[in-house]
Simulated assay, not measured.
Amino acid sequence: MTTLDFSRWNDELDCAVTVCDTEGVVLYQNRRSREVNGDVQGRSLIPCHNERSRAIIRRLLDEGGRNVYTIQKRGVRKLIYQTAWRQNGVVGGLVEYSMELPDPMPHYVRE
Rank of each mutant, 00 (worst) to 15 (best):
S53H: 05
L61R: 03
V76I: 15
F6C: 11
G65I: 01
L27Y: 01
E100P: 05
W9M: 13
D11Q: 05
A16C: 10
M1S: 15
N10H: 13
E100G: 02
M1K: 11
R58A: 13
V76K: 15
G64T: 01
K78D: 03
Y69S: 14
L101P: 00
L4M: 12
I56H: 07
G89I: 03
R8A: 15
N10A: 13
V91F: 03
R77Q: 10
N37K: 06
D39T: 05
I46N: 12
C15E: 10
G38A: 05
E35S: 05
I80E: 11
R54Y: 11
F6K: 07
M105E: 15
I46T: 12
N30W: 07
W85K: 05
W85G: 02
V95Y: 01
L27D: 02
E96A: 05
Q72H: 13
G42S: 01
T83E: 02
L60G: 11
I80P: 03
G38L: 06
D14H: 10
G92H: 01
S98Y: 08
L4C: 12
I80W: 02
D39P: 02
Q87C: 01
V25G: 00
P104M: 12
R52Y: 15
L61K: 06
S7R: 14
V76Y: 08
N88E: 04
P102I: 13
V36M: 14
W9F: 09
T83Y: 09
E111Q: 08
L27F: 01
G92K: 01
P104W: 09
T2L: 07
R66E: 08
N37E: 01
E96K: 08
Q87E: 10
A16G: 06
P102C: 04
G38V: 04
L4F: 11
K78E: 08
R34K: 02
R86S: 08
V90W: 06
E23G: 07
R77L: 10
G75D: 09
T2G: 06
N37A: 06
V90K: 06
E12S: 11
L101N: 08
H107V: 15
V76Q: 15
N88W: 00
G92W: 04
R86E: 07
D5A: 04
R66F: 05
